[in-house]
């Protein structure tokens, strides 16, 4: 145990209480099991699991990923085992840990979103839902729900009607004005907003003149997108009053602190997990060290203290 001078790092996102502001981003941490040998899951603020759909999804044909400067493109296409298999096979493992579990959900129709939300609300061991209305790699649903404020609001409302759990809505950056979407989902009842999902991108193989990804386009993630993510979080925190979760290219505690200072109540670590499975732990420790070094007793004291 550290001395009593160790800073307080718990944060509250409305009803959702987290030990610390560091979560894993959906799609980068499997169902928790994949990293349980590397990371003490009990120490995480929350585990956000791979996006779940009503029925299992095959995902896109390979190749699915390509490295780019300061990041990577992916077009996995939401391959997942389906909500029922998740509840039956994966959730019991996560229940063994004292950690908030956030289920990221995806549907091709309003009805599918509702059904998945209902099943997860009834399951023991899920603490919140994160609506994926922002995946760029699937033909139906995904980003098409997230790029129109009316549609985004309607899907949020539909899920809110079914879900007893807090509902986080995850936004796509592939829109003209992300704050408009954020305001629409807030009005529709979102308990929190997370952003950003990946930016749609491409890579071309000069030898074959073909795309590196079979899907042609993919979602860009990694440190290359952090400045864009920061700008969008800034635009959103100015316009909404629900808690905002910052996502995008966070590799270090310094990166995470930038988002917190802008006004994000928590952050998600995504692609960093791939190249450093201990990234989440290092970010948590780094935030504590920063607070200690600056004689700040509580992480909440720095949230939203940006001085433009």
């Amino acid at each position: 145990m550290k001395s009593k001078t160790s800073p307080q790092i718990a944060v509250h996102l409305g009803r959702l209480k987290l030990k610390n502001p560091v979560m894993t981003a959906s799609g980068t941490f499997g169902y928790g099991e994949e990293y349980a040998d590397y990371v003490d899951l009990n120490r995480l603020g929350a585990v956000v699991v791979k996006g779940l759909s009503l029925k299992p999804r095959l995902g896109n044909p390979p190749p699915r990923i390509m490295e780019t400067t300061g990041g990577m493109l992916n077009a996995v296409g939401l391959q997942n085992i389906g909500v029922d298999a998740f509840i039956e096979e994966k959730l019991p493992f996560l229940r063994k840990y004292d950690v908030a579990v956030i289920a990221n959900i995806y549907g091709e129709t309003y009805d599918e979103y509702k059904k998945v939300a209902k099943k997860l609300s009834a399951a023991k061991g899920v603490h919140a839902l994160e609506l994926n209305i922002s995946c760029p790699n699937v033909k139906k649903g995904g980003v098409s729900f997230g790029s129109d404020p009316k549609v985004a609001a309607r899907v949020t409302q539909a899920v809110k009607e079914e879900a007893s759990l807090p509902v986080i809505v995850k936004l796509t950056p592939n829109v003209t004005d992300i704050a408009v979407i954020a305001q629409a989902v807030e009005k529709a009842g979102a308990d929190a907003i997370s952003l950003i999902n990946t930016l749609t991108g491409m890579a071309v193989d000069l030898k074959t003149r073909k795309p590196y990804l079979r899907n042609i386009t993919g979602g860009l993630s990694g440190p290359a997108i952090k400045p864009v993510a920061l700008r969008m979080v800034w635009e959103v925190v100015k316009k909404v009053s629900v808690p905002v979760i910052g996502i995008g290219g966070i590799m270090t505690a310094e990166d995470a602190l930038e988002f917190l200072i802008l006004g994000a109540k928590a952050v998600q670590i995504g692609t960093a997990n791939f190249i450093n499975p201990h990234a989440t732990m290092e970010v948590i420790e780094g935030i504590k060290d920063y607070l200690t070094a600056n004689k700040i007793k509580d992480v909440n004291e720095i949230i939203g203290t940006f001085q433009p």
Binding site: G27, Y35, K50, N60, R64, I65, Q79, N273, F274, P277
Partner: peptide, 11 residues
Amino acid sequence: ACGTGACMGCA
């Protein structure tokens, strides 16, 4: 990307 089964990239 990850080598540990999380990213689903190496399908």
